[in-house]
């Protein structure tokens, strides 16, 4: 066991962890943040995407100790109490969700993009989502949702 100091969804914690765990398993099995999904376990599908120090990362291939001192945001931390983030609302309203298994990762990749660039081009959106596989939607409505969330964020809306 090693001591891990990490901030998850705004809460600092200092916990003993098995250093052999990957970040996704730590989040899911230890903190019960099961919104982060595992689609491949090899960093190839993006279902496990979380934001680590502002960057979208595939948490299933990150050794948990790499999170030492970092700030992690998971899908459970995106909304503010009962107020959904514009990205979440637009995913729901635009029909960007079908089975929903890729959705948390898609939203985290989208948020990492829009947090640094709230006026992306269509190509920038495609690129940001290029590592997230969705087998249901054909991506059309996901890209629409991101564009429309970007517009709302430009107008000053966030959940926090």
């Amino acid at each position: 066991m090693e001591k891990l100091n990490v901030t998850v969804n705004g809460k600092f914690m200092s916990v003993d962890v098995d250093p052999e765990l990957c970040l996704a398993d730590f989040l899911r099995d230890r903190l019960f943040l099961t919104g982060t999904k595992i689609g491949c376990g090899k960093g190839e599908c993006g279902a496990c995407t979380v934001i680590m120090d502002g960057k979208a990362v595939t948490s299933c291939i990150i050794p948990v100790m790499r999170a030492e001192g970092s700030v992690i945001e998971t899908i459970e931390g995106v909304s503010d109490g009962d107020k959904l983030h514009p990205i979440q609302e637009e995913f729901i309203n635009k029909g960007a969700i079908q089975c929903g298994f890729c959705t948390p990762g898609m939203i985290m990749s989208s948020k990492a993009l829009l947090d640094r660039n709230n006026d992306p081009t269509a190509d920038e959106v495609k690129e940001a989502l290029g590592g997230n596989i969705c087998r249901c939607t054909g991506y059309v409505k996901i890209e629409e949702a991101v564009m429309s969330a970007a517009e709302r964020m430009r107008n000053g809306e966030t959940s926090k």
């Binding site: 943040l33 099961t34 899908i75 459970e76 609302e89 995913f91 729901i92 309203n93 929903g100």
Partner: peptide
Amino acid sequence: PRNDGFDKATGLG
């Protein structure tokens, strides 16, 4: 909007 959208967009589903 689909009625399971909230569960799926929040990771609570």
